[in-house]
């Protein structure tokens, strides 16, 4: 381990000393001012968005009161609406997405950062970035027209042999009836979750790759020097070092999964009751609810949608803050411990 300290001079310390020595000149001051105001603008925009949502949601929140969080319905014109069902639907879709995306992203990131070399590595990095650049409507189209008919078989299999798990139960499906419609498996939380998983995988993967590649060379070399295999090195050095980044990336992905709109909008068949059966036709999510109902909403309807948006805003904010806190507290990017 001492070798690593010799190889890597303490560069940050030097920088720190230099900054201390430099006298704040006019140009520096202006530059700092510009940067500060830019940071402030970001905060201000967030605050304005939140405030706008809160103000516009006022009407609906006053009408619904505390029931807004517990009602499972969306008939704002009859003053019978609440986010209980859609919020849980959103979380379920996001969880399905994350549980599929995280193993995939971890594998991708590990292969790219630890195993792939040369042109293979460059190609894969480009491909993953490309995956992130594909518009969500394309994922939606693909999901609805290609993926859905093909996943139905898997859903059916899961429902047939896994129905003892409450989550995988499907009402109205009788495995013994050959004429039972396949449609009970379409437009489900599961299918929406798969598509969203593909959309969040690149983000999670790039964060993980970044963190993994920062695992200190010294410790890697040490692990090899002790006779570790590559997998042993990954298990004892890269993964523990990157744990914070993995959790942070996962939570960023979760935040994005909860906000995903158009792909879900195209796939799900919206229902406004809590639907815990992820394989069954009928799902819901806040953002797709807004996209669906915005076009034909009345005055209360718009306000109710704003309130739903506010709920989503708060939840995503909490998730993202959580993520950034975990990333900040992790060892990622820190110096190797000697």
């Amino acid at each position: 381990m001492t070798a690593s300290t010799q190889v890597r001079p303490t560069a940050p310390d030097v920088a720190e000393q230099r900054r201390e020595l430099a006298l704040p000149g006019g140009a520096d001051r202006v530059f700092r001012l510009v940067l500060r105001s830019m940071g402030a603008v970001v905060l201000a925009i967030m605050a304005v968005v939140g405030l706008f949502l809160a103000v516009r949601a006022g009407l609906a929140l006053r009408k619904a009161g505390g029931d807004f969080l517990t009602t499972e319905a969306w008939e704002p014109d009859d003053e019978n609406f609440g986010v209980a069902a859609v919020l849980i639907g959103t979380v379920l879709i996001a969880l399905v997405a994350i549980s599929l995306a995280v193993p995939l992203a971890t594998g991708m990131a590990l292969y790219i950062s630890e195993y792939a070399t040369g042109w293979r590595k460059r190609l894969l990095v480009t491909l993953v970035d490309l995956m992130a650049a594909v518009p969500s409507v394309v994922y939606g189209l693909w999901g609805v027209n290609f993926l859905q008919p093909h996943v139905v078989g898997l859903s059916r299999w899961l429902a047939t042999y896994g129905s003892w798990i409450p989550l995988l139960e499907v009402d109205g499906y009788d495995p013994g009836d050959p004429l039972s419609p396949q449609t009970v498996f379409t437009s489900s939380t599961f299918i929406a979750g798969i598509v969203v998983a593909l959309m969040v995988t690149p983000i999670i993967s790039s964060i993980m790759r970044e963190v993994f590649s920062q695992a200190p060379v010294g410790e890697r070399e040490g692990a090899y020097a002790l006779g570790g295999t590559r997998w042993g090195m990954i298990r004892t050095v890269v993964l523990p070092f990157g744990r914070g980044g993995m959790i942070g990336g996962t939570m960023l992905g979760l935040g994005r999964a909860m906000g995903e709109t158009i792909a879900i909008y195209m796939i799900i068949s919206p229902v406004f009751v809590i639907q815990p059966h992820i394989l069954e036709n009928g799902a819901s999510s806040i953002s797709s609810l807004i996209a669906l109902k915005y076009g034909a909403a009345g005055k209360v309807g718009i306000s109710a949608l704003m309130a739903a948006g506010l709920t989503l805003f708060v939840v995503t904010l909490a998730v993202n803050f959580g993520a950034s806190m975990i990333i900040a507290r992790s060892r990622s990017g820190a110096q190797s411990e000697v």
Partner: peptide, 22 residues
């Protein structure tokens, strides 16, 4: 919910859904 209906967005959405072989 629970009546066996499916809702899809857009004319293309409903028509494309009915069209699927399964």
């Amino acid at each position: 919910a629970g009546m066996g209906f499916t809702a899809q967005s857009g004319s293309n959405g409903v028509a494309g859904y009915v069209k699927q072989d399964g």
